Deep mutational scan, measured.
Amino acid sequence: MEVRTIKVFTTVDNINLHTQVVDMSMTYGQQFGPTYLDGADVTKIKPHNSHEGKTFYVLPNDDTLRVEAFEYYHTTDPSFLGRYMSALNHTKKWKYPQVNGLTSIKWADNNCYLATALLTLQQIELKFNPPALQDAYYRARAGEAANFCALILAYCNKTVGELGDVRETMSYLFQHANLDSCKRVLNVVCKTCGQQQTTLKGVEAVMYMGTLSYEQFKKGVQIPCTCGKQATKYLVQQESPFVMMSAPPAQYELKHGTFTCASEYTGNYQCGHYKHITSKETLYCIDGALLTKSSEYKGPITDVFYKENSYTTTIK
């Protein structure tokens, strides 16, 4: 009895394709271990004539594949690729409408935090270190965002349907971005203890939790000093293409032309909904596939993004 075979390709990165001759009487799992086709788990399936010449994702289970996976995804987590594939199996079914010149995501599976993050990423200057993220990001900007969303979920250790947080998501993504040249110098002034300067680099240099107003941050924000008295913390120097200011959701007025974009969060910790506000020729609110415009805006804002380049204080 002759062994019926077909020729397929296996890959971990969709760049390096490895030619395989597979036995049609055995499952993919018996031949390769966990195997995925377009995100779908085909591990328990036997090869079919229609699979001839198709590319299958496999887990990096030998040295060659491990090197290829690390170079593309910059992670050695053995569960990463499987999590990416199972997320992709959902995100490829989502709709990605162009809204006001940006790629958004039609609401499904509690994905409003991903839509808000995706919209924000198209408006701030950011370059990702893992080629996987950078490639998928370019495709997302062009309207094909399924891979990018699935990668975000995998890097953030999230599953489809789980509630997510924009600030946490951005923080994970910033860790995989090139923020080497970003720098922030802060000064804390206390009447009792004097003053202390701190220099922050990388992710810490672009994120701040405690106030939404970048102007206020430049002037000074009140913080408790270690001595128990009130101290003032203010920005001395900022070198970065953008800054992200966050605070627990509270009524906040966004003035046209003073910011790049913002995240609105309605609801409580267990259950809520994100919308995205962007400042173009007027203010726009993007909620999944829905767009509304207004000249002014007041609502429960939790993150505001500002364009920056270089700032030095005039406070002496």
Score class of each variant (00 low, 15 high):
Glu2Ala: 10
Val3Thr: 13
Val3Ser: 13
Arg4Ile: 14
Arg4Glu: 04
Arg4Leu: 09
Arg4Thr: 14
Thr5Ala: 14
Thr5Cys: 15
Val8Tyr: 02
Val8Phe: 02
Thr10Asn: 08
Thr11Lys: 02
Thr11Glu: 00
Val12Lys: 00
Ile15Pro: 00
Ile15Asp: 09
Ile15His: 15
Leu17His: 11
Leu17Ala: 04
His18Phe: 07
His18Cys: 13
Thr19Glu: 15
Gln20Val: 12
Val21Glu: 10
Asp23Lys: 13
Ser25Asp: 15
Tyr28Lys: 00
Tyr28Ile: 02
Gly29Ser: 04
Gln30His: 13
Gly33Val: 00
Gly33Trp: 00
Gly33Tyr: 00
Pro34Gly: 06
Pro34Glu: 12
Tyr36Ala: 02
Leu37Ala: 10
Leu37Tyr: 12
Asp38Tyr: 10
Gly39Asp: 06
Gly39Tyr: 06
Gly39Arg: 02
Ala40Cys: 13
Asp41Cys: 08
Asp41Glu: 15
Val42Thr: 06
Lys44Ala: 07
Ile45Lys: 12
Ile45Leu: 09
Lys46Phe: 14
Pro47Ser: 02
Pro47Met: 02
His48Glu: 10
Ser50Gln: 14
Ser50Lys: 10
Glu52Ala: 11
Glu52Leu: 10
Gly53Asp: 15
Lys54Phe: 09
Lys54Cys: 10
Phe56Gly: 00
Phe56Gln: 12
Tyr57Gly: 01
Tyr57Ser: 03
Pro60Arg: 08
Pro60Trp: 08
Asn61Gln: 07
Asp63His: 09
Thr64Glu: 13
Leu65Ala: 10
Val67Asp: 15
Glu68Asp: 10
Ala69Met: 11
Ala69Gly: 00
Glu71Gly: 15
Tyr72Trp: 08
Tyr73Thr: 02
His74Glu: 07
His74Val: 03
Thr75Pro: 01
Thr75His: 05
Thr76Val: 10
Asp77His: 04
Pro78Glu: 15
Phe80Asn: 03
Leu81Ala: 06
Gly82Asp: 15
Arg83Pro: 00
Tyr84Cys: 02
Ser86Gln: 12
Ala87Val: 08
Leu88Trp: 04
Asn89Ile: 08
Asn89His: 08
Asn89Ser: 07
Asn89Leu: 13
His90Lys: 12
Thr91Trp: 04
Thr91Phe: 01
Trp94Gly: 02
Tyr96Val: 03
Pro97Ser: 09
Pro97Thr: 12
Pro97Arg: 06
Pro97Asp: 04
Gln98Asp: 10
Gln98Thr: 12
Gln98Ile: 03
Gln98Pro: 06
Asn100Gln: 13
Asn100Met: 15
Asn100Ser: 02
Leu102Pro: 08
Leu102Asp: 07
Thr103Asn: 02
Ser104Gly: 12
Ile105Val: 00
Trp107Gln: 14
Asp109Asn: 05
Asn110Thr: 05
Asn110Pro: 05
Asn110His: 02
Cys112Leu: 02
Cys112Met: 12
Tyr113Thr: 05
Leu114Asn: 02
Ala115His: 01
Thr116Cys: 12
Ala117Thr: 15
Ala117Met: 12
Leu119Gly: 07
Leu119Thr: 04
Thr120Ile: 10
Leu121Tyr: 05
Leu121Asp: 00
Gln122Asn: 02
Gln122His: 08
Glu125Cys: 10
Glu125Phe: 07
Leu126Cys: 08
Lys127Val: 12
Lys127Glu: 12
Phe128His: 01
Pro130Trp: 01
Pro130Cys: 13
Ala132Leu: 02
Leu133Met: 11
Gln134Arg: 11
Gln134Ala: 09
Asp135Met: 15
Tyr137Ser: 05
Arg139Trp: 14
Glu144Ala: 10
Glu144Val: 06
Glu144His: 15
Ala146His: 07
Phe148Arg: 00
Phe148Pro: 00
Phe148Glu: 00
Cys149Phe: 04
Ala150Lys: 00
Leu151Gln: 03
Ile152Trp: 03
Leu153Thr: 00
Leu153Tyr: 15
Ala154Tyr: 00
Tyr155Arg: 00
Tyr155Asn: 06
Tyr155Gln: 03
Tyr155Ser: 00
Cys156Asp: 00
Cys156His: 01
Cys156Glu: 02
Asn157Val: 00
Asn157Glu: 08
Lys158Ile: 01
Lys158Asn: 04
Thr159Ala: 04
Thr159Phe: 06
Val160Gln: 00
Val160Lys: 00
Val160Arg: 03
Gly161Pro: 03
Gly161Gln: 01
Gly161Met: 00
Leu163Ile: 14
Gly164His: 02
Gly164Lys: 03
Asp165Lys: 12
Arg167His: 13
Arg167Pro: 05
Glu168Val: 08
Glu168Gln: 04
Ser171His: 11
Phe174Tyr: 06
Gln175Asp: 08
Gln175Ser: 09
Ala177Phe: 06
Asn178Leu: 04
Asp180Lys: 09
Asp180Leu: 09
Asp180His: 10
Ser181Met: 08
Lys183Cys: 08
Arg184Ile: 14
Leu186Phe: 12
Asn187Ser: 14
Asn187Met: 14
Val189Cys: 09
Lys191Asp: 09
Lys191Ser: 12
Thr192Asp: 09
Thr192Trp: 08
Gln195Asn: 12
Gln195Glu: 15
Gln196Met: 07
Gln196Asn: 15
Gln197Pro: 08
Thr198Ile: 10
Thr199Val: 12
Leu200Cys: 13
Lys201Met: 13
Gly202Cys: 04
Val203Lys: 15
Ala205Asn: 05
Val206Thr: 02
Tyr208Ile: 05
Gly210Leu: 07
Gly210Ile: 05
Leu212Val: 12
Gln216Trp: 03
Gln216Arg: 04
Gln216Glu: 04
Lys218Ala: 07
Lys218Arg: 07
Gly220Ser: 05
Val221Asp: 01
Gln222Met: 11
Gln222Cys: 09
Pro224Phe: 12
Cys225Ser: 02
Cys225Arg: 03
Thr226Met: 10
Thr226Trp: 12
Gln230Trp: 10
Ala231Glu: 02
Lys233Ile: 12
Tyr234Ala: 12
Tyr234Asn: 05
Leu235Gln: 03
Leu235Ser: 05
Val236His: 15
Gln238Pro: 04
Gln238Ile: 02
Gln238Met: 03
Glu239Gly: 03
Ser240Ile: 05
Ser240Phe: 01
Pro241Tyr: 02
Phe242Thr: 06
Met245Ser: 04
Ala247Ser: 13
Pro249Val: 14
Gln251Met: 14
Leu254Asn: 07
Leu254Tyr: 03
Lys255His: 12
Lys255Met: 13
Gly257Thr: 06
Gly257Ala: 11
Gly257Phe: 03
Thr258Ile: 08
Thr258Gly: 11
Ala262Trp: 02
Ala262His: 06
Glu264Val: 08
Thr266His: 08
Gly267Gln: 10
Cys271Val: 15
Cys271Trp: 15
Gly272Cys: 07
Gly272Val: 05
Gly272His: 11
Gly272Gln: 13
His273Glu: 08
Tyr274Cys: 12
Lys275Thr: 04
His276Met: 13
Thr278Val: 10
Thr278Ile: 10
Ser279Arg: 08
Lys280Asp: 10
Glu281Val: 01
Glu281Asn: 08
Glu281Arg: 09
Thr282Trp: 07
Thr282Ile: 03
Cys285Glu: 10
Gly288Phe: 02
Ala289Lys: 00
Ala289His: 14
Ala289Leu: 06
Ala289Gln: 07
Leu290Met: 15
Leu290Trp: 10
Leu290His: 14
Leu291Thr: 13
Thr292Val: 10
Thr292Pro: 04
Lys293Phe: 08
Ser294Tyr: 14
Ser295Glu: 13
Ser295Thr: 10
Ser295Val: 13
Ser295Ala: 14
Lys298Asp: 06
Lys298Tyr: 11
Gly299Arg: 06
Pro300Trp: 12
Ile301Gln: 05
Thr302Ala: 10
Val304Thr: 05
Val304Trp: 04
Val304Phe: 04
Val304Met: 08
Val304Ser: 05
Phe305Thr: 05
Phe305Leu: 08
Tyr306Asn: 06
Tyr306Ser: 05
Asn309Ser: 14
Ser310Leu: 14
Ser310Ala: 13
Ser310Asn: 14
Ser310Trp: 10
Ser310Pro: 08
Tyr311Ile: 09
Tyr311Asp: 09
Tyr311Asn: 10
Thr312Met: 13
Thr312Trp: 09
Thr312Asp: 14
Thr312Leu: 13
Thr312Glu: 13
Thr313Ile: 10
Thr313Asp: 10
Thr314Gly: 12
Ile315Met: 13
Lys316Ile: 12
